[in-house]
Amino acid sequence: MGHEVISNTSLSPTVHRLVVSAPRIAVVRQPGQFVIVRLGPGAERIPLTIVGSDAAAGTIELVIQAVGKSTADLVAVAAGSYIDDVAGPLGQPTDLITKGTAVCLAGGVGAAVMYPIARRLSEIGVELITVVGARSSASILFEDEFRSFGDLIVCTDDGSAGRAGFVTDALADLIAAQTVDVVYAAGPVPMMRAASAVTSPRDIRTIVSLNPIMVDGTGMCGGCRVTVAGAMRFACVDGPEFDAHSVDFDELADRLTTYGAAERIAVDHVCRSAGQPVTGRHGAG
């Protein structure tokens, strides 16, 4: 058993798009939801946004940035191979506005999280401005798609495309120039924190998609806990989207560094042993 990888295409030097067979999830998933994926025996369970789906074909789309061992292993899965476990859809669907103006703010692979939200907002027919940021022109994701959904502002750190600088600077200019009813933001924690700081003085509703480390994704372990408005919430079941102005970003950023040393060991280990197969019970899918 398992989930066939129908296709695997490279979108940028480190980001791949995988179309994966998951018929049930393809039918019921909604923007904002994610899956927990476990490649095979010995692999980690990692959360990935459901970027899109084709209910008729029974497939979902994942966009994965190789940042460590587990994501590197996943982007290396060839079409026709299988992923053992895909559980979902998990998390709460995005709270979408039905009229007014929305800004979708995406930094780096946050574009994968923002894509299904922007797409649905354009289907609903709200005024939509998407701001995507990337290191350079080569790593901008979904540029054509976002453009087809509404207005698009591209920002690059090196100025190789669009405007040079941070997406949050573009956001500040936007809200100074026009009325914005809601901002949806996904990306690195510093970017989400900065976005929150930009919109908070004007009290513009801002929803961020948090990315804490997860294990089960069902509310059982508490590892994904985040502090929102002073209260503990589990991102996998209560989120992953929360009101940005209430999120404790410092705690989130800090907890994401928990396994920094272990992550380096995991990557080194692969380099040394070229990934010996892990056998035994947990080989059972």
Binding site: G42, A43, E44, D73, V215, A266, H269, V278
Partner: peptide, 8 residues
Amino acid sequence: AFPEADTP
């Protein structure tokens, strides 16, 4: 079994 298994 980390790092033979991936979860730390």
